[in-house]
Design a protein around this nucleic acid. Structure first.
Length: 254
DNA sequence: ATGACTCCCAGTGGGAGA
């Protein structure tokens, strides 16, 4: 079973690329972030024609998530139960017996901003809900754009980024708290090339210079840890003519 | 360099992203 996450930065713009990517990478489930589409504009027909079931949850201009799956997705949940939120950031469902949670974590903008306070509250809400989800679903995968670089090894210039958004101790503590609930970073289960990133700024020729961050993650529950066969970042779509600034991350489970 | 790009909604610029 292969699962993937991709922040597409507008599904309206990226739909053809996403369909091409699915043809080349026929994963069993794919979660999307930053679809930036209201629900009435979601391209359900095109996705179903590609052979996927799909659930979606969006809003105008910002955020928006979706879950595509070969097999029907059961017990679909949108956003975090118990955390009132006007922003469409989470979609969860059970696919082939695995609880799949796709999430677009808040950016946070800057550590002294109101958006950072929202990010902290959101992370607290996620953590609380996830503890319950893990009790109900031993086999669970949390994946998406976390907007957190968990360690300095996930940052191209840790000195310049020290204390900056994505790298603050508070964000990293929240990431660790998710692991402490009983999750493991699938990417770090394997030896990986140094300077492996999932996001590169559109500016400054950042991709060409490989100046990026690893902020898109796939965390698996302990019950799935031994089933993880591989985890990788697919940089290829970032080389497209009009790429998303994020690359997909893929995990393979037995 | 408090930039650089891309997307969106707007409306001939500005906010947000990360």
């Amino acid at each position: 079973m292969r699962l993937a996450t991709w922040n597409v930065n507008s599904l309206n713009v990226r739909l053809p690329q996403m369909l091409d990517w699915l043809t080349a990478n026929p994963v069993d489930a794919l979660v999307l972030q930053e679809t930036k589409l209201t629900d009435d504009k979601f391209p359900v027909a095109e996705i179903e024609a590609a052979g996927y079931h799909v659930h979606w949850f969006g809003q105008k201009t910002y955020n928006g998530v979706a879950l595509l799956s070969r097999q029907p997705a059961l017990d679909v949940v949108k956003n975090i139960p118990g955390f009132a939120d006007e922003q469409a950031r989470v979609i969860a469902a059970t696919v082939d017996g695995v609880r799949c949670i796709g999430a677009y974590f808040p950016n946070g903008q800057a550590p002294d901003s109101e958006k950072f306070a929202y990010k902290m509250a959101w992370l607290q809400g996620l953590q609380h809900w996830l503890a319950q989800e893990l009790k109900a679903h031993a086999k669970l995968v949390l994946m998406g754009d976390f907007n957190i670089a968990p360690t300095d090894a996930d940052v191209y210039d840790p000195v310049a980024w020290a204390g900056q958004i994505h790298c603050t101790p508070q964000e990293r503590a929240h990431f660790q708290a998710l692991l402490d609930l009983g999750l493991v970073d699938a990417f770090r289960l394997f030896e990986q090339a140094p300077k492996s990133w999932s996001w590169w700024d559109y500016r400054n020729l950042a991709f060409r210079k490989n100046q990026g961050l690893r902020i898109d993650h796939i965390l698996v529950s302990h019950a799935l840890k031994d089933a993880v066969q591989a985890c990788s970042i697919d940089k290829l779509p970032r080389k497209n003519e009009r790429p998303s600034d994020h690359a997909p991350v893929i995990v393979e489970l037995t």
